[in-house]
């Protein structure tokens, strides 16, 4: 707990969170260029979670969605709890040493996708009725038409559309933190949990 509070109140972590929020927002720019079927809107959140812990990661997630909601698409704010969970779970996994090897990182990405599904499904069903007007709605419709309940249809769709994105985001962060020079990572207390066996 002391590590959590210490990093949370550090000015360096605040500055990191601010740039990570921007990375989350502009990450989609590369996605548009490469036409990949992923979101790339959580790389900054996972990076902060690995470097500065679960609370900093959760804050990065919440503020990303609040700011997107404030300037681009207000509906994004409804999914702020999902972004919070991504940061929180990524930070807890990093603290437990699950960003040390490539296979641990892949599993961490899957766990993050599973955790966000638990939070995203009630939001999508209760607020949005199960659909959001995106391409993923076709999958919800397909699963429902083959006999799945609304909850399981939405859950399969959310998990399926997020798992590749979260695994890839986790792997990109894992690859990055292994290569970063010490001058850029000095002062981030949580990094030692992800680098010990690297």
């Amino acid at each position: 707990m002391s590590a959590i509070t210490k990093t949370y109140f550090d000015t360096k972590v605040l500055a990191l969170i601010a740039v990570a929020i921007v990375i989350n927002i502009v990450g989609g720019q590369f996605n548009d260029l490469l036409r990949l079927p992923i979101f790339l809107d959580s790389i900054g959140t996972i990076l902060v979670a690995v470097l500065a812990g679960p609370i900093a990661g959760a804050i990065t997630g919440i503020f990303t969605n609040v700011i997107i909601g404030l300037i681009f698409a207000p509906v994004a704010a409804a999914f702020a709890p999902v972004a919070l969970v991504i940061g929180l779970v990524a930070g807890l996994l990093a603290r437990a040493g699950w960003f040390r090897t490539i296979w641990q990182t892949v599993i961490s990405g899957v766990v993050i996708a599973a955790a966000l599904t638990v939070v995203a499904v009630p939001i999508r069903i209760y607020i949005f009725g199960g659909v959001t007007g995106s391409g993923a709605d076709f999958f919800v419709a397909y699963f429902s038409s083959v006999g799945q309940t609304l909850v399981s249809s939405v859950a399969f769709t959310v998990f399926g559309s997020n798992v590749a994105d979260k695994v890839l985001s986790a792997l990109l962060v894992w690859g990055l933190v292994r290569q970063l020079p010490e001058r850029l990572t000095a002062g981030y207390d949580y990094l030692k949990f992800s680098k010990a066996a690297a």
């Binding site: 000015t11 360096k12 601010a18 740039v19 990375i23 990055l176 970063l180």
Partner: peptide, 12 residues
């Protein structure tokens, strides 16, 4: 990402 981390350090 690397430039963002350098930026964060300078800003802090």
């Amino acid at each position: 990402l690397t430039s963002a981390l350098a930026d964060a350090q300078e800003r802090s």
